[in-house]
Every structure is written in structure tokens, then in C-alpha cells.
Design a protein around this nucleic acid. Structure first.
Ligand SMILES: NC(=O)c1ccc[n+]([C@@H]2O[C@H](COP(=O)([O-])OP(=O)(O)OC[C@H]3O[C@@H](n4cnc5c(N)ncnc54)[C@H](O)[C@@H]3O)[C@@H](O)[C@H]2O)c1
Ligand SMILES: NC(=O)c1ccc[n+]([C@@H]2O[C@H](COP(=O)([O-])OP(=O)(O)OC[C@H]3O[C@@H](n4cnc5c(N)ncnc54)[C@H](O)[C@@H]3O)[C@@H](O)[C@H]2O)c1
Lengths: 217, 217
DNA sequence: TTCACGCTGTGAATTGATTCACAGCTACAA
DNA sequence: TTGTAGCTGTGAATCAATTCACAGCGTGAA
């Protein structure tokens, strides 16, 4: 079950994109895709796609390309869609609620199963279909469910404490939206999604068209 | 006023982070920072910080490090905080509202000045302090204000059309949250923020601790 | 049955980003 | 005044990601 080669985070991210467009292709009854088609739909190069599929050992046919449904299954397996994955969200503010609304019921085996907030007005009810608990119930709820992934949408001042508690509860992957650099023990994966930096970056290039050049990833 | 060397998008993103932590440092009355301190606060290496500051030609003192307020001013200038920047948001759903709530009034010279939606129930009022207009008023509103940056938070099915319209209105930088690969003409900067991929990536590494290894960027 | 086209799989090359490593400087201590 | 510890600025080295380029194959056409 061990991974032979190490998989880069970029590759995993692209797998998620492949999965999405393969889903659409499957819905439109396409049976095969060429690497250049998949690439186009994802905004990548054909060589990139072939390289990625190589890393998960998927192989296509030289004349017909890749079998859509087979590849979809393979990519889904790779991403862990074969067994249920449970996620938790902490911080039911504007952003937390947007995420709950979006992700709940979107995929039954990849689901946010609990939300937490320090504000007692927001807890002990169901928001967008997810049970909301006070933060001090975290361990009690998360441990038995073996939740592995946590989403942090609390203010920056509370984020480190929340991260620490989530890790204590057995979470090994964190998606952090708070604008602070969190410290996590080795073995815990941390991904920061910094909306402010992203926006300032876009504004920078919008205002400096000379730099935009070939910056179109 | 032209950029001599090309600036990478990664560097710009880090500039935004530097700006944030420099702001905090200034508030706490720190007068100087060493590259390794700034690096620690941003989760980067000291060499990286020095390299970045080199690209904007900022230079510190070998014994006291960098002057906080001077560097803050310099980085802010670099990012374009010296003149007002106007942004527009299209799609006043959950995510759009979260962004409006967060970015409005946070910085008066870097501001979302208009929001648009196709749903007539959502327009012609003020949400979180921002005027909301019907989509067909886009040109009329954006052109005179010289809005350069657009945020797209509409459903995937509408995103390409919205992107096209924004570009028509003179926008040269787009931050897209919709899970589709948009096509924009050369010279327009496009940044995709794909929350689903980000989440699936975290879930992947949460479930494959072996791969987490040195993946801690 | 044979041919030719256009695709895949993949080493090798390239490009880009990050880190190393160290010369040179500066403030402070003695 | 001199010594020194610890920092910056930066060329060179390394490491990571992407692209090139092409051998080899499978399919459909003739
Ligand atoms: N909304 C955005 O567009 C946006 C943009 C950039 C960054 N962010 C960051 O994302 C995070 C969330 O943003 P938001 O707009 O949803 O904020 P918000 O203020 O609307 O929500 C924060 C929520 O966290 C809860 N909370 C506070 N302390 C807590 C604790 N210790 N434990 C559990 N819950 C706690 C609050 O009760 C609140 O419900 C913030 O860190 C913010 O800086 C948001
Ligand atoms: N909310 C999340 O957490 C999340 C996660 C992943 C991806 N996304 C993506 O972000 C985007 C926005 O998500 P959301 O949850 O806010 O969606 P939402 O459905 O709550 O809001 C979409 C808004 O866009 C408006 N709209 C629809 N067509 C339009 C058009 N042609 N012109 C202008 N406005 C139009 C709708 O009236 C609505 O107000 C979607 O593309 C979604 O896939 C959101």
C-alpha cells in the first residue's frame, strides 16, 4: 500500500482537476480522451498530463487515448474516494458557511461531518446540513469518527490554538484560511489558502501588464 | 517606471505576506527585522526573504537587519498601495458575500467598489457596504472607475461569460473561484483559486502520511 | 494485408525556484 | 582602537517542475 515514488503536491492538485473534468466528460458520454484534450480542458500541456498519469501508473492506448471511465475511477481511487473521508470545519463565520453550503451533500463519501465554533449562539444546531458543536466537544466528536482533515476558518488570533486542538484530535491535514503562519508537528500536512495574497497578486499583475507576459500559468 | 527584471508570481505573493507581517511588526513598535525573523513569521527561509527583497532592490543593514517602516512602505509601493486600486466582484452568493464582508473597509485604497449579480433580487442595494448592480450595468459602472481587477464568484456555467464581459470592460486581472478553466486574451492575468482541489489535496496528504514527508512548503 | 498517421510513454533537456555558502560590512564590547 | 559575532547581498549550486523530442505502437484506410 506504500507509495513507491513520492507524489508532489502539484500533481495531487492536478489530479483533482482531472477528476472534475473527467466527471463532466463521462456525463457527456465521451468514452475516450487524448492527453491534449484533457490538457486543454485543464489549461495544461499535453506532456504535463501524460507525465501525471504516468506517476499513478495509468496507461492509455496510443490510438484512442485514455478510457474516460477507467481513468476517472483510477484518479478517484488515487485521491481516496474509494473509502469515506470525513472532514471537520472550525469557525462558522462567513467563509465557513460558504464552504459548508458548497461542500455538504456534494459528495457523500467526501464530507464535512461536523463544524465547531466558539460562539455559543452558532452551535447546537444544523447549518447547511452539518451539526455544529461548541469547540470543547472537538475531541469527543472527532476521535470516534476518525476525522483526518480539518478546515480552519477562524480569525487569525485563534487559528494556532485551533490548529493545535485539531492535531490533538488526530487530524493529519489542515486547510487554513487564516492569515497567519501556523506551526504544526511533523507528519501533519498544512495548506494555507491566503485569499488576501491571491487578490493582491492579481491586482499587482492587473496593474503591471508588462509583467503579466508569460505569467499565465 | 518599467520593471527591469521580470517578477515571478510567487514573489509577488510573498510580498503580500511580508506586507502583512511587517504591518504587525510596525504596530508592535519593532523598528528592525532580520531576514531570518521575517522568514520565520512567514514560514519561509531567510535566503528566500533576502532574495525577494533583492528583486525589489531593497537593502538592509548588515548589523541591524531591515528597517521595518521603510520596508513596509517599499513593499506597499511595490504592490501598488500608493494609488487607489478598484476591484469589482461578480456573483453575490455565499462566497461573494464572504469576500465582500472581509475586504470592504479593510483597506480604503484597495477596495471593492462594485458588485454584480444576475439575480435581480440581489441588486440595487448595498451589501456589506458595496453597491450591487445588475450585470448589464457592468460597462457603465466599471469603465469610468477604471476598475482593473475582477473577482468571479458565479457558478461554473456562467464564469466564462462573466470573464469575457469583465475583460470587455477593461479589467486586466481576474481572480476566479469557479471550477472551470477560463480563456482570456493575452495580457489579462488569470488566477484560479480552486477550493475543491485545495481541499482534496489536503485530504490526500492527510490520508497518506508517508507522502507528507518534506511536502511541508 | 499493408501502410501511414497520430498518439502514448518516457529519457533527456530545459527552465524556474530555492538554497548554499561566503565575502564584506557594521555595531558594539573591551 | 581593535576585535569579533552575526548579519546582508549575491554568484554558484542544487533541487524541482515542466517541456522536448522521439521510438514504438495501434487503428483505420486502402
Ligand atoms: N471572508 C473572507 O473573504 C476572507 C478573506 C481573507 C481571509 N479570511 C480569513 O478567513 C478566516 C475566516 O474569515 P470569516 O470572514 O469567515 O470570519 P468571521 O469573523 O465571519 O468568522 C470567524 C468565526 O470563527 C469563530 N471563532 C472565533 N474564535 C474561535 C475559536 N477560538 N474557536 C472556534 N471558533 C472561533 C467566530 O465565532 C466566527 O463564527 C479569518 O481568519 C479571515 O482572516 C477571510
Ligand atoms: N462556496 C464555496 O465554498 C465554494 C467552493 C468551491 C468552489 N466554489 C465556486 O465558487 C463559485 C461561487 O460559489 P458560491 O457558493 O458563492 O455560489 P452561489 O450559488 O451561492 O452564488 C452564485 C451567485 O452568482 C450569481 N450568478 C449566477 N449567474 C450569474 C451571471 N451570469 N452573472 C452574474 N451573477 C450570476 C447567482 O445569482 C448567485 O448569487 C461557484 O463557481 C462555485 O463552484 C465555491
Amino acid at each position: 500500500m506504500a507509495q513507491q515514488k513520492k507524489i508532489s503536491s502539484k500533481t495531487v492538485e492536478r489530479m483533482s482537476q482531472y477528476r472534475r473534468v473527467l466527471g463532466r466528460l463521462a456525463e457527456s458520454n465521451a468514452t475516450h480522451v487524448y492527453s491534449h484534450e484533457l490538457a486543454y480542458l485543464c489549461g495544461l500541456s499535453a506532456a504535463q498530463v501524460r507525465r501525471d498519469l504516468m506517476t499513478i501508473g495509468f496507461t492509455g492506448s496510443s490510438a484512442r487515448g485514455y478510457d474516460v471511465s477507467e481513468l476517472l475511477r483510477r484518479v478517484s481511487d488515487f485521491l481516496g474516494f474509494s473509502r469515506e473521508r470525513r472532514l471537520a470545519l472550525v469557525g462558522i463565520g462567513y467563509l465557513g458557511r460558504a464552504l459548508l453550503d458548497y461542500f455538504v451533500d456534494r459528495n457523500p463519501i467526501f464530507r464535512i461531518c461536523a463544524a465547531f465554533d466558539a460562539d455559543l449562539d452558532k452551535v447546537d444546531r444544523v447549518i447547511h446540513g452539518v451539526r455544529c458543536y461548541p469547540v470543547d466537544k472537538m475531541g469527543e466528536i472527532l476521535r470516534p469518527l476518525q476525522v483526518q482533515t480539518g478546515i480552519i476558518t477562524v480569525p487569525a488570533s485563534a487559528a494556532q490554538q485551533v490548529a493545535f486542538e485539531l492535531v490533538e484530535c488526530g487530524v493529519t491535514g489542515l486547510l487554513n484560511f487564516a492569515p497567519v503562519q501556523l506551526r504544526v508537528p511533523p507528519g501533519v500536512y498544512l495548506e494555507n489558502l491566503d485569499l488576501t495574497s491571491a487578490l493582491e497578486k492579481v491586482a499587482y499583475f492587473a496593474g503591471n501588464p508588462a509583467d503579466t507576459e508569460r505569467e499565465m500559468k
